[in-house]
Design a protein around this nucleic acid. Structure first.
Lengths: 257, 257
DNA sequence: CGCCAGGTTGAAGTTCCTCAAAATTTGTGG
DNA sequence: CCACAAATTTTGAGGAACTTCAACCTGGCG
């Protein structure tokens, strides 16, 4: 497994069909589905329009009707909802290889907002192309369906976190999950770029003050190291704190667990 | 829209293929997908093995590999996870017409537990039969995929509830959701059978004491009425308390919202 | 060099939890 | 149909976890 495609040319707003655009998607799908050479080729020829986003840029909004899906090539995206009184809740965090709005293929009206939480590079894939892919190859359709199901499993685990874990456990769990998901696409070898503490707070249903104190404690115990927003973690010990078991990420194609 | 099928004969553990078994499923799918007469027929002939469950009966467990899906005909089911220290979190609540473990079609290893929270009648449908249905008819495959996506949307809304709403708002939101989802399959005309307050607590990430006090307050304000575990609600006022907007349930096939 | 988003810390306040005991309802066997 | 046991609901009191408010610090960047 090679390094991230972060060294690819800055392609800006141009249409391109090189294999590197869907590289992350292929890495991701390979974790939950065995893909034939023919299927790999089918994925590589998907039309992808790459663009860069800033740090806190909204991609799509609740109520929008969309006609394409977004594939993350680099960076982190998040779903969120706002409350009447201005509170924000992040519903999911997405890493490279994820298609955060894959559900729009069958539910084109967005029921939440989507934004970048660190600078990102994303690719737009027309629904038309994805629908055609699914028609051509039912196994790929099933693979994409499976991706949406795994994402549902991740969301359910968040419900468990928010409902029954302490602040300390929640933060530890979130960091473990982030690490393992990045690792699955080969991006955990170097320190991990973090979102702001306010974003972590919005994700874990806490105040940013509480996030700050919790990170301080984890740092002082040597469970994590943070330097200029880049983090390294002591996975085994952090896993123990959160009681983190990656089974729910369904990353093993052998057991299709 | 006619009454619930609760007057059907107590069929026990026998295999049956009468149309009434999948009646609830058809009602449910019709809310998010337009079905042709041919597709209705295809659904009616699914093999369904009906059985009754008690009030707190586990249907399947984390780690189980399953080869069939469960269709709820009557009653309520719930997904849940337990914490190391014995706390329980309910991840989803299911109503008649739902297939709580539809994800097992592509992720056969359960990543959570499934149990009944009131006495229920459920039907088992072999994965084989559902997979064949999907192969025969891609539109039905898409309809089932869409069901799993809607369920994901519901789970995300729970994340928002647990992360950013007060106890009062959470309880109000849960009751609104339960009402509207039951209404969608024609079961909201009469008082709604409730789960225990401990179950509500486990669903909303609260203690049962807090649930009790919250229900007392809602009752004293006339927002809900509870008699022997059966509830009626003042939907408009409760909706206002929770800021409940049913868009996320995607119950309107016109907008496919 | 100074601005500004984001991080850090203290102190006070709130919401919800835990513990405990009593009241009520439900289920079950006689 | 009743009586008893078990489950569930209800209420009070005290405490823990987290929020809010407010001030100050830090580092990246024009």
């Amino acid at each position: 497994m090679q390094k991230a495609a972060s060294s690819s040319p800055e392609s800006g707003n141009v249409m391109s069909q090189t294999s590197s655009q869907t590289d992350m998607l292929i890495r991701r799908l390979s974790k939950s589905t065995r893909l034939s050479e023919h299927e790999l080729q089918d994925l590589r020829t998907l039309p992808v329009t790459i663009r860069e986003t800033g740090k806190n840029e909204t991609i799509s909004r609740e109520g929008d009707r969309v006609d394409h899906c977004i594939l993350i090539v680099e960076g982190l995206l998040a779903r969120f909802l706002d409350t009447r009184d201005g509170k924000r809740q992040i519903l999911s965090i997405f890493v490279p290889g994820d298609i955060p709005d894959l559900q729009s293929l069958h539910l084109p009206t967005m029921d939440h907002n989507l934004c970048s939480i660190v600078p990102a590079r994303v690719g737009a894939i027309p629904h038309r192309a994805l629908a055609a892919l699914c028609d051509r190859n039912p196994r790929l359709a099933a693979a994409l369906w499976r991706e949406t199901l795994i994402e549902g499993s991740v969301t359910r685990r968040w419900v468990h976190c928010l409902g029954r874990l302490t602040a300390r456990q929640r933060v530890a769990h979130m960091l473990c999950e982030l690490y393992v998901r990045l690792d699955a696409v080969g991006l955990a070898g170097e320190p991990i770029r973090l979102m702001t503490q306010q974003d972590m707070a919005d994700a874990m249903g806490l105040s940013f003050v509480q996030i700050n104190r919790t990170l301080r404690d984890l740092r002082s115990e040597g469970l994590i190291t943070i330097e200029r927003r880049y983090m390294t973690i002591d996975l085994p010990r952090l896993q123990e704190v959160a009681n983190f078991d990656p089974l729910y990420l369904h990353l093993d194609p052998e057991t299709r667990g």
